[in-house]
């Protein structure tokens, strides 16, 4: 238990450092990109641009801007958006993240449950028709890009059959198409990965032992099989959950979902410097926390793993 706490503290420090590094790199890279937040507004006189740059501190040397930003960041303040005039970045991220996370959460639950079920079924029916169909499905799911899937779903369910809404998130039916689009890849990936590891595990001696004890097929497959086969899936889940929770730009664009993914790309195009920093740091934080959770989960699943 003490080693666990020590480990958590250590990992936490590492995580903070990682986020600090990402913030620093992003800050300087961002400033290397030509252009500025006010270039897109056509008829701005040079004087006004100058005043605006002054207002947002953009005339200072980059290193001073960096220092000022970091001091505010340390206090948890991500600053104010330049494009969405006067709005706190913290508020924008919070609001947009809730939208993306809602879609993302349903996607993750769907991808994990169906993906695991498909992987197990494929493994136990190895070589049979079901297995082959599932293999075709998962290969397609991994190979076809999500904008193609989205378009196909839109044409089938939105245009031809006219049974599902195609944009926005105003009712629960609106979630179906974006969630399906997003879930395709992770579902296929989990199914494929789990099929392989499950086949390997089912060949192990302890599975034979479990059968010889007269346990039910469910106990053998889940308690003894799945538990041993799940570790690679957990590894994949960390970054996967982080990506999906923070929203996909493509899918949000296609289905007109006002989420964080769209906001992120928009901020880069508009050179909304504080917004770029805010979304990047937020994404990094989610990613780092997910990896942190995965690390702890390993230990929960496999007692042999030493946390060092």
């Amino acid at each position: 238990m003490r080693s666990l706490i020590k480990h958590i503290v250590k990992r936490f420090a590492y995580s903070l450092f990682t986020i600090f590094l990402i913030a620093t790199i992003t800050f300087f890279l961002m400033n290397l990109v030509p252009g500025g937040p006010f270039l897109s507004e056509k008829n701005l006189s040079p004087q006004i641009t100058e005043v605006m740059n002054d207002k947002y501190g953009l005339n200072e040397p980059v290193i001073i801007q960096y220092k000022n930003y970091m001091i505010k960041l340390a206090q948890g303040d991500l600053g104010v958006s330049i494009i969405n005039k006067g709005r706190d970045i913290n508020d924008i991220i919070y609001e947009k993240f809730l939208i993306s996370a809602k879609v993302g959460f349903i996607t993750i639950v769907l991808a994990i449950t169906i993906g695991i079920a498909m992987g197990v079924v494929a493994a136990i029916s190895k070589g049979k028709l079901v297995d082959r169909l599932l293999t075709i499905f998962s290969t397609l799911g991994m190979a076809v890009p999500n904008f193609v899937i989205a378009t196909a779903l839109l044409i089938i369910f939105g245009v031809k059959l006219r049974i599902l809404p195609t944009y926005g998130l105003s009712s629960s039916a609106h979630f179906i198409l974006p969630v399906l689009t997003l879930a395709f890849y992770p579902m296929a990936y989990i199914a494929r990965l789990l099929r392989t590891t499950m086949l390997d595990v089912l060949d192990q001696d302890y599975i034979r032992t479990a059968r010889s004890k007269g346990l039910s097929e469910f106990q053998v497959l889940v308690k003894h099989g799945l538990r041993n086969a799940i570790t690679p899936i957990i590894t994949y889940l960390g970054p996967m959950i982080a990506y999906i929770l923070t929203g996909s730009f493509v899918v949000e664009k296609i289905f007109s979902i006002p989420g964080l993914g769209g906001e992120f790309i928009g901020s880069i195009n508009g050179r909304d410097y504080p917004m770029i920093m805010g979304t990047t740091i937020f994404l990094a934080t989610i990613m780092v926390s997910m990896n942190f959770i995965v690390d702890i989960l390993y230990k929960v699943i496999d007692p042999r793993i030493e946390l060092n």
Binding site: Q204, D205, Y206, T209, S212, G214, L215, H224, R227, D302
Partner: peptide, 27 residues
């Protein structure tokens, strides 16, 4: 299958050769 499960481990049991691999490492 179901009937066999009832006698396995109850009326007839087996001890396998390699104990290091015959027990589930995670339980």
């Amino acid at each position: 299958k179901k009937e066999l499960q009832k006698i396995r481990g109850k009326e007839v049991s087996i001890v396998f050769q390699d104990p290091n691999t015959s027990l589930n490492p995670l339980l």
